[in-house]
Every structure is written in structure tokens, then in C-alpha cells.
């Protein structure tokens, strides 16, 4: 009986040790951290692009996808080497404040407004973003907003301002702020029959569309520009300047830009490169 007890304890200890040793490897010394918006991850761009980059250069890239607002905050805390987001004014402020070395345009796509097929606000087929929003407000059709200070949320607020409407006054009524990421907001929006503004890449890759349709698209004001910035080693001495810059250089190179352009989902191109090598 003594032996059985020993055996039991031994087996338990073995299991635990085995599990602890089975998965090796933590942070690699030369791996960089990219603080990123979520659309680039949720749409599958990184899963497509990073293996190509890593295979070519042998450099590892770790992506923390948290939404533009949070990504910028994390980068300000020096918790990243490269920032890849989509909110140009905030990005420029980040550089102006000395946290970023230089901002470069990387690629673009556009925002769209999706909604239920019944289209209670009758905005289907419209191009003008602010006008569509004012019709949604007038008809008090439900609108689900990110409400999380992300790049998409910033853009949405900008469009409301252009329409001369303060939707926050109707917060909790027809204006619903989910305080969540793009995917969660789309899930919520589809669930409650609300209009949602989203970037096209996330929408195309999103799998819980239900019977939702794109209602508003094609306005210049709905342009969605992504930028990339190296975090400034003067503010954050631990930034891996060499590896970070190498990644940015590749993204902006012919090879990187072509890789971005070649990522397609359901036959559709999600991101359009417009970076320039300086």
C-alpha cells in the first residue's frame, strides 16, 4: 500500500513536470513586439504575412492586437517596438510627443456601414457617410458604436461631427456604445439589428454576418488609412531599433507591399498598399 501511494504521488508529480516542460520557449531575444489595431489581426493579414517575413529574414514578430487607442497607450508605456494602427491624427500626435520616430503611410481600405436587410433608416445604397448617419439618427434606428476610442471609433465620431449630431445624447436609447472590439461590436450589432460602422477587412473576414448587408460605402470620407511607426528609443531605450526598423522597411518595400496586396479573402483584396520607401 505504501508503494501505491508513492506511485500515485510520483504519477501526479510526473504529469505536472511533464506539462511544465512540454512546451518550451518564451520570448526570443530578437523578437519584436508590434502594438496593433485588431482589424489587421482579425482579418487574418498577420497570419498570412508574418510567416512570409519570418521565413525571409529569420526575424520573429509578435503581435499584440488591442485596438488603436489601447495600442497607442501601450506603446507610450514602451511596451512595444512598432506601432501599426489606423488613426492618423492620433498617430501624428504620438510622433509629435516624441514617442514615435516617424510615421509612414502603409496601406488603406475603407469603412462601410452595415445594417439589417429591412434597412429601417433607408440608407441602403448611399455613399455619403455623414448624411447616412443623420438619417439613422432621425429615424432613431439602432446604431452600435465601438465606444472604445479605437481608430474606427475615432473615425465614427468624426463623421457624426460632420453630420452635426451628438449621438452620445441618445446613448442607451438608439445609440448603443458596446465598449468592445470590432468583432464583439459586430456580434452585438447583428444580434440587436443595429447599424454598425466597420472597416471592410474585418467585415469580409467576419463569419457571423447573419443576413446583414453593406448599406453605405464608397465615400471619400470613409477612407481608412493605416500607418506604421517605430517607437522612439529616446523615450524607450529598450526598443529594438534594428529589428523594428527592418520590419518597417520590409513592409514599405516592394516585396512587403506586394505581399499585403496579395492577401485575399473570398477573392477580395482586403488592404491596398500605399506605402513609400523614404
Amino acid at each position: 500500500m505504501k508503494h501505491l501511494k508513492t506511485l500515485t504521488l510520483g504519477a501526479a508529480a510526473g504529469l505536472i513536470l511533464g506539462a511544465a516542460v512540454a512546451v518550451p520557449g518564451t520570448a526570443q531575444a530578437d523578437a519584436i513586439i508590434v502594438q496593433s489595431t485588431t482589424s489587421t489581426q482579425n482579418s487574418g493579414l498577420y497570419d498570412y504575412m508574418l510567416p512570409i517575413y519570418e521565413k525571409k529574414t529569420g526575424n520573429k514578430v509578435n503581435v499584440v492586437a488591442v485596438g488603436t487607442g489601447q495600442a497607442i497607450k501601450n506603446a507610450r508605456n514602451c511596451d512595444g517596438d512598432v506601432l501599426l494602427v489606423h488613426a492618423k491624427p492620433a498617430e501624428e500626435k504620438f510622433v509629435a510627443d516624441g514617442y514615435g520616430v516617424k510615421r509612414s503611410d502603409l496601406m488603406y481600405n475603407d469603412f462601410i456601414i452595415v445594417g439589417p436587410p429591412a434597412d429601417p433608416a433607408k440608407v441602403g445604397g448611399m455613399k455619403d457617410g455623414p448624411k447616412a448617419l443623420s438619417m439613422i439618427a432621425k429615424s432613431e434606428a439602432i446604431f452600435a458604436s465601438r465606444g472604445d476610442n479605437s481608430g474606427t471609433h475615432k473615425k465614427e465620431k468624426h463623421l457624426w461631427k460632420a453630420a452635426g449630431i451628438d449621438p452620445v445624447k441618445a446613448s442607451g436609447k438608439w445609440y448603443r456604445e458596446t465598449g468592445s472590439g470590432m468583432g464583439a461590436t459586430l456580434n452585438a450589432g447583428v444580434g440587436m439589428g443595429a447599424y454598425v460602422m466597420t472597416d471592410r477587412a474585418t467585415w469580409i473576414s467576419f463569419k457571423n454576418k447573419g443576413d446583414y448587408k453593406i448599406q453605405v460605402e464608397g465615400d471619400k470620407q470613409l477612407f481608412n488609412q493605416y500607418g506604421v511607426i517605430l517607437v522612439n528609443p529616446k523615450k524607450c531605450p529598450k526598443v529594438k531599433v534594428k529589428e523594428g526598423q527592418a520590419f518597417i522597411d520590409w513592409l514599405l518595400s516592394k516585396d512587403g507591399q506586394e505581399t499585403i496586396a496579395s492577401y485575399k479573402l473570398k477573392g477580395l483584396q482586403l488592404f491596398f498598399p500605399n506605402g513609400k520607401m523614404m
Partner: peptide, 18 residues
């Protein structure tokens, strides 16, 4: 991915992908 992705964070990610 391949570094700190666990079961629950994968579930959260797939949920946000719809």
C-alpha cells in the same frame, strides 16, 4: 500567436472574428 495564445484567448479571438 505561438507565444502567449492559450485556449481562452483563442476563444475570445475567434468570437471577435465572428
Amino acid at each position: 500567436n505561438h507565444l502567449t495564445r492559450v485556449m481562452t484567448t483563442t476563444i475570445a479571438l475567434e468570437t471577435s472574428k465572428g
